[in-house]
Design a protein around this nucleic acid. Structure first.
Lengths: 257, 257
DNA sequence: CGTCGGATGTGAGCTACTTCACCGACAACG
DNA sequence: CGTTGTCGGTGAAGTAGCTCACATCCGACG
């Protein structure tokens, strides 16, 4: 595992073949980019050049894109699917830092600072991702003040988000943290279905624990209770929120400022 | 308290008078700036202009510089002394985010993004601080790519630091977190004394709790044990580490990866 | 088809922290 | 000068969330 080399795109060579370059719909890609992220502030031609030069790859579920400590050669833009960013904390406990969905870029931290990767990136679902060469990214961003500010804004938002999470970790009881996590997932990565909001990928109880700083058994217990209360539906790792308002109330009642 | 207005420099008007402008040693200030922080990458003349235009203020211990939610009009550079940055978490629990010492700037987050302040800033000791006008800061940084990158690097470092803290919060037992906090303080804000390292300001047990996510009583208990073991000296809020190695070992033994 | 690793489900303890309830000291303040 | 608020110190008691221990189910893989 450790010996799998990192290729030029910053993505590990697939072990089983079959990470084909999918048919490329440049217009769709541009639309995604324009809508979100730092890249949206680049000049038209730079953006085009960037898209033209950056390989798009299809990844199966559960593929490792990079690991903590790897050299950070590229920035990844998610086009389809979801990628989990996580690290190991003390005692081998996994901590999920973020889940990146379509339109999200990640890996820019290592690239911008020339530092090693600080997280493991693993696909949660089958994905299409674009691997943007780090040098190119740096150059284009550096000559576009707008993009620099966008990068600063992105980092700031992350900073606020992770600070809030840290505060929650020391000040909120477990079930409240779990409820917040579910609501957050629903906010970013869900689709509306009849009678609820369905989270767009499967998550094991272990992974939910890694998002909230809890152990599997605790997650199980609370999900069970909420299943019984009719707040959620939950089977085989897929979660649907049936009563978002109830969860929100539960959170509000327990984080009284 | 809430009604105290924020003045043009982003610093609250002192209530008791006596926040005089101290004698100004431009050379010393420049040296501090050159040594650290974003400002060091500005062009010579910009930097001079900035220093000339920015008021320096002396603040007594325990003065509030700004509060969470205030408009972020200025960036603060600490010249002397220490400033605590903290927020309220759920249930009115204080969380200390950072302690800024000489050469540190803070408040850039709100200024760069035009967002409100995200923390309370309170002087822990008597301080000299320079209040840099937000607009000026933004303008100078925007036209200096070097400084933009420095800002990005600064935010990245913060991001890594707070992420690590968050991970520690969910994966390390209380005393280990406390030990880490003490070592961290010793690392950044201490002076060597005979037979130990002395932390350069007083901290109540409540505040140590706010740095580690613990309550006062727990802090008390652990400090007592370490006092008994001869690892630290501790009286009236001032802490001296007498056996840094022991603390380090304690941390390492308990965060086995 | 068996079996083996990993995920879920569930319960019986355990314990690290918190909560609560005091004391005494000390500084600020009328 | 008493009074009042904040801090440090300490112990008793409660509990949230952990560890541990199984049992079941499922998909992957020989």
């Amino acid at each position: 595992m450790d010996s799998v080399p990192t290729n030029e795109g910053g993505l590990r060579e697939p072990r089983t073949g079959l990470a084909a370059t999918p048919a490329r719909d440049t217009d769709a890609i541009l639309k995604v980019i324009r809508a979100h992220s730092i890249l949206g502030s680049l000049a038209e031609q730079d953006l085009l050049a960037l898209v033209r030069q950056s390989p798009v790859r299809a990844l199966p579920k559960n593929r490792v894109l990079f690991r903590n400590g790897d050299e950070g050669r590229s920035v990844v833009l998610v086009l389809q699917g979801h990628v989990k960013l996580s690290t190991m904390a003390a005692h081998g406990r996994e901590v999920v830092l973020e889940i990146a969905g379509p339109g999200t870029i990640f890996g820019e931290l290592a690239v911008l600072n020339g530092s090693p990767r600080r997280a493991d990136a693993t696909s949660l679902t089958a994905c299409h991702v674009m691997a943007i060469d780090g040098g190119l990214f740096r150059r284009l961003v550096a000559r576009t003040p707008e993009a620099m500010f966008a990068a600063i804004r992105l980092l700031s938002e992350r900073l606020v988000a992770v600070t809030t999470q840290g505060m929650d970790a020391v000040s909120l009881p477990a079930p409240v943290r779990l409820a917040k996590a579910l609501l957050h997932l629903a906010d970013l990565h869900s689709q509306r279905v009849t009678g609820g909001v369905h989270i767009g990928f499967q998550l094991s109880q272990r992974e939910l624990g890694a998002m909230t700083g809890l152990i599997r058994e605790s997650i199980n217990k609370h999900l069970k209770a909420w299943r019984a209360a009719g707040w959620i539906e939950h089977a085989g790792g897929s979660v649907t929120l049936r009563d978002v308002a109830a969860l929100q109330d539960f959170v509000r009642d327990n984080e009284a400022r």
